[in-house]
């Protein structure tokens, strides 16, 4: 496989990897690094990729594992993730449009979910994967994915209703 073939192969899903990494790592830069890292790993393995039924699913699993490892090592070091872009968003909150404002709320709520649920929301509601694919990527069974998804969605709804009741958003 040469460079061009590789790029053609990863093009359909490289943005998905990035968005998944961003969902977990929050920071734009860290997500870029993680995606780059995963793509480099994929490139190193390029000759053994035929044996995977879906390279996309494989890459998503790699991204998930890489990001969780990153988070683990960060938490172990008592370091907080530096998410500068997040702060920047907060700063512009004032001038943000009404829409943008409520999107930020949604994003915040999703960020407060456990990692597993973040992953599932990301893959189902944003990337629109089938349950079967999510189950494969996360190495779970489909029922567990559904249960977790429902839990995550209800959690978001609950928080949304709360903010609505307070009249914040």
């Amino acid at each position: 496989m040469n460079q061009n073939e590789f790029i053609l192969m990863i093009n359909p899903f490289k943005d998905k990897l990035f968005r998944l990494a961003k969902r977990l790592l929050v920071s734009h830069e860290e997500a870029q690094d993680a995606t780059q890292e995963v793509l480099v790993k994929l490139w190193d393995k390029k000759n053994g990729l035929e044996k995977y039924s879906s390279i996309e699913a494989f890459a998503m699993t790699m991204t998930k594992n890489y990001c969780l490892d990153q988070l683990k090592s960060k938490r172990a070091n008592h370091l907080k993730i530096v998410h500068s872009n997040y702060v920047a968003k907060e700063a512009t909150l004032d001038q943000a449009t009404e829409d943008n404002d409520s999107w930020n709320w949604v994003e915040k709520m999703i960020n407060e979910l456990p990692d597993q649920q973040k992953l599932i929301i990301q893959m189902r509601d944003i990337e629109q994967y089938e349950f079967e694919e999510i189950a494969k990527i996360l190495d779970m069974n489909e029922t567990a994915v559904r249960v977790n998804l429902s839990r995550a969605r209800k959690m978001i709804r609950e928080k949304m209703n709360k903010t609505h009741a307070y009249g914040i958003s």
């Binding site: 990863i10 943005d15 990035f18 968005r19 870029q32 780059q36 999107w103 949604v106 978001i156 209703n161």
Partner: peptide, 24 residues
């Protein structure tokens, strides 16, 4: 109030991995 949720999902799908691997 669910509107922002679904609009957020649509919007989030637009984020792209910008620094292309090609550049490197």
């Amino acid at each position: 109030h669910y509107q922002s949720l679904f609009q957020f999902f649509v919007k989030e799908k637009e984020a792209q991995f910008s620094p292309s691997i090609l550049q490197k």
